[in-house]
Design a protein around this nucleic acid. Sequence first.
DNA 1: TGCATGATTTACT
DNA 2: GTAAATCATGCAA
Length: 210
Amino acid sequence: MPRPASHAGLVAPDRAWFRRDPVALAPLLLGAVLAYDAEDGRVAVRLSEVEAYRGVGVDPGSHAFRGRTARNAVMFGEGGHLYAYFTYGMHVCLNVVAGEAGTSAGILLRGGTVVDGLDLARSRRPRSTDRDLARGPARLAQALGVPLAANGSDLLAAPFSLEVRSAPLAHETGPRTGISGAGGAASYPWRFWVPGDPGVSVYRRHPKSH
DNA sequence: TGCATGATTTACT
DNA sequence: GTAAATCATGCAA
């Protein structure tokens, strides 16, 4: 049986693949396909938008900036694991741990397009159009069905599967979104997306223009 | 022990 | 366009 067309040009990364600077790693995740097998089925998403976060002491926008805590402990571990966190009282967001162990770098998965398990993703997000199913960090987590309890999971082992592009996609960069301006962290161009991809979130473009 | 806040989404005017 | 929903986390006290 042939591989699905959505997996063309994809290869499974090894552990060492994640062991590099998150700003270099983030664009390599564009076009990658992340899948999660939940009890009620499997959904896969092709990533179209990500953000890089550097580690403790150097990136004011990072959860790890002020040092290791119970919440961000996973970021200080080995690359290729999942950092899932709960925010705004109702949302889960997903990150890929990057860099050498101890650097506490991560990459936030901001958006993507459902390429497998479409019906299941629709049932999890009945109020979304197909385009909106995984467009946005919390929507992506909900479409995949990844619970907060999956924090720390190895993305290279079941129930997860991750395949990245053998040839990186063309991409654009810009400022990260949703970060308070403290320290100018929001101005770093560490947001990466695939131009024209429907899974790119474009809200909050001009938060303060008059 | 208590309180301010957030890597957001959704609904409503 | 603006505002509400909703709670774990982290820091002050």
